[in-house]
Design a protein around this nucleic acid. Structure first.
Length: 458
RNA sequence: GUGGAUGUAGCUCAGUAGGUUAGAGCGUCAGAUUGUGGUUCUGAAAGUCGCCGGUUCGAGUCCGGUCUUCCACCCCA
């Protein structure tokens, strides 16, 4: 070992135990998506850079991984560009592709490209990794999985309600307690308009979003620095600091807005959504939260964010409505709503709080010990039989000491070991050892399937 | 991208004002037990002390750079 091998910053290997637990998360989410009528698609890991650039704001562009062109890309450059110190400019000339940053923008591209093959409203889900050249931290990786469900081609708020329901369903199944926060971009725009700061919407929302983290005063300071005048901020203060139930907030808001701006429409949408949610059996807390502003800048209506109640790790699911995402790819008039689960953070949350059910790591139920070629051959028909019955089983491949084989079974958490030695071959029997209790019984080989089925149920 | 901390065996960590052969626990492997694991006992292997360079008679220890991981900011799943 000359140089210690490693993986790139912010990426990880997953060991079998971790995979079993990760798959439990993926399987749960996939199962829920299936249940609500979403169909799966996949898109390539890399996209043309032109599809990605400009969709996530300046910050997002910086975080894109770019892929160096193949071949003699330098030779094709004009002489005077080669030595220029502007790496950004150079990167644009020698990189035509990049790794996807999320699943939504590639999906928008996908919808436009395949519009004639799809039936609208199109409900799809997609579970794939994405890459961001962010600086890694706890719960922040450079490669991580998103699990997205989107509906495109429908304006109905039923979709938003469904997404909230899906979020609740997934987290109830995983056993994670969460708070689902909702807001509406139109309400935020209405507020900005009300204080006469249409053009400062971004600065305002970015600051408001930090409310629970840094407090009201610091939020106001930040807005001041962002160029929002003091008198506008003092008008804003009571709105941001609004407390009470979801409907209290809605009532207070509707009296604030006039008929003209987007605010009232946003408020109506929020009311309609909350009314529908009241008819669904949602177990987790749902908060209409004016301070919620997150989301990529293409969101235009409802926005979602989900945080674990018991673990501090940032959001584990987010989403929202985007009125015209496909417009930039040349297909206007299609509205979409989507949610995205962050599988890696959900994993971290579960590890730190509720844990995983023990059964998720179990694979092999029964292992046959290997006593030599002849005895192993006697096991082969039994393996066939057990597998046909759906019992996960394996034969230890080498004739080594039984102690070692037992150790192997123990380390792998295999609950039963079958022993077929010289004597069992002769008598057509099998000795089955229960690794948990340590007891063992010798039974006829014909009885092995039924024996295991009754033992395993216990 | 900005600022700060970290890095010693597979893992968790010791390592005294720079001084000779760098330690422990857990794990791994072997044996006690030639058809029986998880307990016990005995023994062994395992580290260019993150990497590169500098100061010094001498560096795990001091200095510089670099990489990793972590923390804050930014942003986000």
């Amino acid at each position: 070992m000359s140089q210690k091998p490693s993986v790139p910053k912010g990426t990880r290997d997953f060991l079998p135990d971790e995979m079993a637990r990760r798959n439990h998360i993926f399987d749960t989410i996939r199962g829920v998506f299936d249940l609500y009528g979403y169909v799966p698609v996949e898109t390539p890991a890399m996209e043309n850079l032109s599809s990605l650039l400009g969709k996530y704001g300046d910050e997002g562009d910086k975080l894109l991984f770019r892929i160096l062109n193949s071949g003699d890309f330098m030779g094709k450059l004009p002489e005077d560009e080669r030595g220029s110190g502007d790496s950004n400019r150079l990167a644009n000339m020698i990189c035509d592709r990049g790794l996807r940053y999320d699943l939504t923008v590639p999906f928008a591209r996908f919808v436009v490209q395949h519009r004639n093959e799809l039936t609208f409203p199109f409900k799809r889900y997609q579970i794939q990794p994405v890459w961001r050249a962010d600086r890694p931290q706890k719960g922040r990786y450079r490669e991580f999985y998103q699990c997205d469900a989107d509906v495109i081609g429908s304006n109905s708020l039923l979709n938003e309600a469904e997404h909230a329901r899906i979020i609740d369903d997934v987290f109830v199944r995983l056993g994670i307690k969460v708070i689902i926060r909702l807001n509406n971009r139109k309400i935020l725009a209405g507020i900005a308009g009300m204080i006469g700061q249409h053009d400062k919407l971004i600065a305002m929302t970015v600051a408001m979003d930090k409310l629970d983290k840094i407090g009201l005063d610091a939020v106001c300071n930040e807005m001041l620095e962002g160029g929002i005048p003091p008198e506008a901020i003092s008008k804003l203060k009571p709105v941001i600091g609004m407390t009470g139930s979801n409907s209290d907030k809605l009532d207070a808001l509707s009296s604030l807005f006039d008929e003209k701006g987007p605010g009232l429409e946003g408020t109506r949408e929020m009311k309609e959504l909350l009314d529908m949610l009241a008819l669904l059996e949602i177990k987790n807390r749902v908060d209409f939260d004016l301070a919620l502003a997150r989301g990529l800048n293409y969101y235009t209506g409802t926005i979602f964010e989900v945080k674990a109640s018991d673990v501090e790790i940032g959001s584990i699911c987010g989403g929202g409505r985007y009125d015209d995402l496909t417009g930039v790819f040349g297909l206007g008039g299609l509205s979409g709503v989507g949610i995205s689960f962050g599988a890696d953070r959900i994993y971290d949350v579960m590890l730190q709080s509720v844990g995983f059910p023990e059964t998720v790591v179990a694979s092999t139920r029964l292992m046959f010990a290997n006593f030599g070629q002849k005895e192993a051959e006697a096991c082969l028909p039994l393996l066939e039989k057990l597998r046909k019955s759906g019992i996960s089983t394996e034969l230890y491949p080498d004739k080594v000491k039984i102690k070692k084989q037992m150790q192997y079974a123990n380390n792998r958490n295999i609950p039963f070991v079958a022993l077929i030695g010289e004597k069992e071959v002769r008598e057509k029997t099998v000795t089955v050892k229960n690794m948990k209790t340590g007891s063992q019984e010798t039974i006829s080989q014909d009885a092995i399937t039924n024996y295991l089925i009754t033992k395993m149920v216990k």
